[in-house]
């Protein structure tokens, strides 16, 4: 079952090994009093164990389980979004309909009906939920609510469902699986976050958009982008059907779009005057704080792969 000739399995083992090393290093540094807020760091690590544990378990369990996991992630993200962004009491029933798009969208992934998957939310949910909201008969605040609901669904359901849809892509090269693509996308997106943060901390001086995110610097952005592009070139040819050149391009796309996903959610939080979107992942914040970049990288990477490799 656990085949070590499958690069996906080897990668997962390496990630777990890396997490063990990171955990042990952190514990040692905490023991030596080298960390400013040790509790925060340990909470963060614990949350990483949960995230990676659940993700890898679902990968090992198969395509269906993984699709269900991402459906659940969409649910948590949409719920968090609709909790922090104000909607009207009269929108409750329309919002209930919005939740129902999640099983529908992921069912379309599971049966691999691509034509419907790609238009279900932008066309059908878009129109039907607007009509449903009209039928509540409340005009005051209508534009705000109808806009919030659709934008939220696009980010948390539509975008995120592209991660799951990687698993059912009919790849031209039958020697690789969708899991490799999914792992590549998630790893590069998260590493991009980490590298941008590290380069920003070490070298960052000139800020990119201080009004939205004072911690985002040019050094962080370029450093992160360069490292992720390089790493993608290293990992892509092993995990995915992409060759070196296309892996580098994919890494570049992920680096740039990941940055914009991150600052988009920052903008949302700034508007609402909150720091974290929730408490689901102790040490990280809410689920939107964790998947902000992924909501931008997933659809772009998906279409990049779909265009060139199916």
């Amino acid at each position: 079952m656990f085949d070590l000739s499958d690069p996906v399995n080897v990668t997962m083992l390496m990630v777990l090994g890396f997490l063990v090393v990171a955990h042990v290093t952190s514990l040692v540094l905490v023991k030596l009093n080298k960390i400013q807020s040790p509790e925060e760091l340990l909470l963060r690590l614990k949350s990483w164990w949960w995230i990676i544990g659940l993700l890898f378990l679902s990968i090992v369990s198969g395509v269906t389980t993984s699709i269900v996991l991402f459906g659940f992630i969409s649910f948590l993200a949409l719920k968090e979004f609709l909790s922090i962004v104000p909607t009207r009491q009269s929108d409750r029933r329309v919002i209930f309909w919005a939740y129902l798009t999640i099983p529908a969208q992921y069912y379309l992934v599971a049966i691999n009906w691509y034509g419907m998957f790609v238009i279900f939310i932008p066309v059908y949910a878009f129109l039907i939920l607007s009509v449903r909201m009209v039928l509540t008969g409340k005009n005051s605040g209508f534009i705000h609510s109808v806009g919030v609901l659709h934008w939220g669904m696009m980010l948390t359901v539509y975008s995120v469902s592209h991660v799951a849809c990687l698993l059912v892509l009919p790849l031209a090269d039958a020697t690789v699986t969708g899991f490799g693509l999914m792992l590549f996308l998630i790893m590069m997106t998260q590493l991009n976050d980490v590298c941008q943060y590290l380069f920003g901390k070490l070298l960052g001086r000139r800020k990119i958009i201080p009004a939205v995110s004072p911690n985002k610097t040019w050094a962080g952005f370029i450093g992160g982008l360069a490292s992720v592009t390089a790493l993608a070139g290293l990992v892509g040819p092993i995990l995915t059907p992409m060759d070196l050149q296309f892996s580098l391009m994919a890494g570049f796309i992920i680096g740039v779009s990941g940055f914009f996903g991150d600052v988009t959610i920052s903008s949302v939080k700034r508007d609402l005057k909150i720091k974290d979107s929730g408490q689901l992942l102790p040490g990280h914040g809410g689920i939107l704080d964790r998947i902000d970049s992924l909501m931008f990288t997933a659809p772009l990477f998906f279409h990049f792969v779909r265009y060139f490799y199916t």
């Binding site: 649910f75 909790s83 919002i95 209930f96 929730g278």
Partner: peptide, 19 residues
């Protein structure tokens, strides 16, 4: 805060939200 949205008085339909 939030429960008056999730399940207010007189409503039978629970709408998931963070609280």
């Amino acid at each position: 805060h939030g429960l008056g949205y999730a399940l207010p008085k007189g409503e039978g339909l629970l709408v998931p939200v963070n609280v």
